[in-house]
């Protein structure tokens, strides 16, 4: 059962995303209209605490359960791919009101039509793979 811990981590993720309403289309709309602090509070707390965690792991050179150092790889330097890719992602995020994680959490809630969006996500990923070499990076 070496995968059980990842399933449990996923369950925790699914529950907290649901209970804090971060998987709701309405909350994403509220965020992109700057009409509530809610989503900014969630992302802000997460980034702040994650930064503390990352700093601590780096400073004390903490290791994972197998004794390997926990490494954070730097992202490749570029502007075009992050700006264009990010913008395309943002268009979809605001339309569906869910990013990739919440797409699947919503499926668990029984919103079956979201399977079409998940299928769209796979087609979009495949299209990227297909045209990768023709896109500016």
């Amino acid at each position: 059962m070496k995968f059980l811990k990842f399933i449990l981590a996923g369950i925790l993720f699914g529950i907290v995303m649901s209970k804090s309403e971060a998987i709701s289309w309405y909350r994403i709309q509220e965020m992109f209209r700057f009409q509530a602090f809610h989503m900014y509070g969630i992302i802000g707390t997460a980034v702040t605490l994650a930064a503390l965690l990352t700093y601590t792991i780096k400073k004390y050179k903490l290791r994972d359960i197998q004794g390997n150092p926990i490494i954070f790889t730097d992202k490749e330097k570029s502007v075009a791919r992050y700006l264009i890719g990010g913008t395309v992602f943002g268009l979809g995020w605001a339309l569906i009101g869910a990013c990739p994680g919440p797409l699947f959490v919503n499926l668990g809630h029984g919103y079956w039509p979201i399977l079409v969006a998940i299928f769209g996500g796979l087609v979009g990923t495949y299209a990227y793979g297909l045209f990768q070499n023709k896109l500016p990076h």
Partner: peptide
């Protein structure tokens, strides 16, 4: 809407890494 929105999410997240 669902298919297109999903496509944008999938394409954009992979392009943007």
């Amino acid at each position: 809407i669902l298919l297109g929105g999903g496509f944008l999410i999938g394409f954009g997240s992979r392009y943007g890494g």
